[in-house]
Amino acid sequence: MHFVKAKGILSSKNGMNLYRGCSHGCIYCDSRSKCYHMDHIFEDIEVKENAIELLEDALTRKRKKCMIGTGSMTDPYIPLETEIGNVRKALRLIYTQGFGFTVITKSARILRDLDLLQKINEKTKCVVQMTLTTFDEALCRKIEPNVSTTKERFEALKTLRDAGIPTVVWLSPILPFINDTEDNISGILDMCIEAKVYGVICFGMGLTLREGNREYFYKQLDHQFPQLKERYIQTYGNQYIIESPDNNRLMRLFHQKCSAGNLVHNNQQIFQYLQTFEEKNLTRQLCLWDLVEK
């Protein structure tokens, strides 16, 4: 790891990255793409040493409360978080200043902060977004070698359910010729139904490849799935969007199972839900005033 002093912490859409780079080792990681201008070795995690001070200042200056998000570029619950603790410090600030929170992760480490997640959710709204890609534990270890297994993430989703914290699952990416099977999609959605997630985000059965992450992906294919790289090159060339040959059939299955399991599966509706700030204490107060007036 290495430390830097950042100039800012919140994006225009109130997202933040406390770290840059990752040690999960997922073979398909888009954050390796050169367009993100990460000018250091990806596994050499960049730590923003003044992140918490910047966040406190940014939240203090906010005129309106909103949802604060993290995890879109770098999973904040990498092993280094256990040592640095920036996520937990950020959660304390978000709670004390009355903001909502949402996070995207693949790690069961998030349960370390269950107490703060509950406090935020009791006061405003906290939504945990968990990525699930494969129902097969052995395959999970191949394509996501250093992250919590699918079973561990499933158990975390159930723990969050029992704690009253809403969850959303990202069904992404689905790798052609690897995990683009009916059994895999059904298995993941059965988990989502049992865990009573709010909804499942899916942009189609496939992945994206561009300069930076394509080279890493192909290198890992050579290591884990010999000869499969050649099939990708022959089928897709240098395409950015890599769609499974079974996309249409699998998407029909996806929508059917989500509908049957009462899972929201409209991406726009889910994103609207994630972005909408709710102040629960205020809602309760208004309800009480309504009763008094009546």
Rank of each mutant, 00 (worst) to 15 (best):
residue 158 K to V: 12
residue 155 E to R: 14
residue 252 R to P: 00
residue 22 C to M: 07
residue 26 C to N: 08
residue 257 K to C: 00
residue 36 Y to D: 02
residue 188 I to G: 05
residue 204 G to D: 04
residue 66 C to P: 01
residue 65 K to V: 03
residue 28 Y to D: 01
residue 109 R to K: 11
residue 154 F to Y: 15
residue 93 L to N: 03
residue 140 C to M: 12
residue 58 A to D: 14
residue 254 F to C: 06
residue 156 A to K: 06
residue 29 C to V: 08
residue 3 F to Q: 15
residue 181 T to M: 01
residue 76 P to N: 07
residue 72 S to I: 13
residue 136 D to Q: 02
residue 145 P to V: 06
residue 2 H to W: 12
residue 265 H to A: 15
residue 29 C to G: 10
residue 250 L to P: 09
residue 200 V to T: 06
residue 103 V to Y: 08
residue 63 R to G: 15
residue 54 L to P: 05
residue 190 D to S: 11
residue 190 D to V: 04
residue 49 E to N: 07
residue 62 K to P: 01
residue 175 L to A: 01
residue 125 K to T: 12
residue 257 K to D: 00
residue 47 V to R: 10
residue 170 W to V: 11
residue 240 Y to W: 09
residue 148 S to H: 04
residue 159 T to K: 14
residue 253 L to R: 09
residue 39 D to N: 15
residue 243 E to K: 14
residue 78 I to L: 14
residue 205 M to W: 00
residue 39 D to R: 13
residue 5 K to L: 09
residue 97 Q to S: 11
residue 66 C to T: 15
residue 85 G to S: 09
residue 287 C to A: 13
residue 274 L to Y: 01
residue 27 I to K: 12
residue 113 D to K: 08
residue 181 T to Y: 06
residue 59 L to N: 06
residue 78 I to D: 09
residue 239 Q to G: 00
residue 132 L to F: 14
residue 224 Q to K: 07
residue 15 G to D: 12
residue 197 V to D: 08
residue 77 Y to S: 10
residue 118 Q to P: 01
residue 160 L to M: 10
residue 26 C to I: 07
residue 275 Q to K: 11
residue 141 R to C: 09
residue 101 F to K: 11
residue 123 K to A: 04
residue 107 S to D: 04
residue 16 M to T: 07
residue 14 N to W: 08
residue 199 G to K: 02
residue 272 Q to D: 12
residue 104 I to C: 05
residue 288 L to P: 00
residue 253 L to S: 01
residue 217 F to V: 06
residue 64 K to N: 12
residue 78 I to R: 05
residue 98 G to L: 02
residue 236 Y to T: 03
residue 90 A to D: 10
residue 47 V to W: 07
residue 243 E to V: 11
residue 69 G to K: 08
residue 87 V to H: 02
residue 77 Y to N: 07
residue 262 N to Q: 14
residue 264 V to I: 15
residue 234 Q to H: 13
residue 82 T to W: 12
residue 35 C to Q: 13
residue 140 C to F: 04
residue 110 I to E: 10
residue 46 E to R: 13
residue 28 Y to C: 05
residue 58 A to Y: 01
residue 80 L to I: 15
residue 283 T to S: 13
residue 240 Y to C: 02
residue 182 E to Q: 10
residue 111 L to T: 14
residue 223 H to E: 07
residue 113 D to E: 10
residue 259 S to K: 15
residue 207 L to A: 11
residue 268 Q to L: 10
residue 158 K to P: 08
residue 180 D to A: 05
residue 103 V to M: 05
residue 282 L to P: 01
residue 65 K to P: 06
residue 239 Q to E: 09
residue 26 C to E: 03
residue 187 G to M: 08
residue 121 N to D: 13
residue 141 R to V: 02
residue 87 V to C: 02
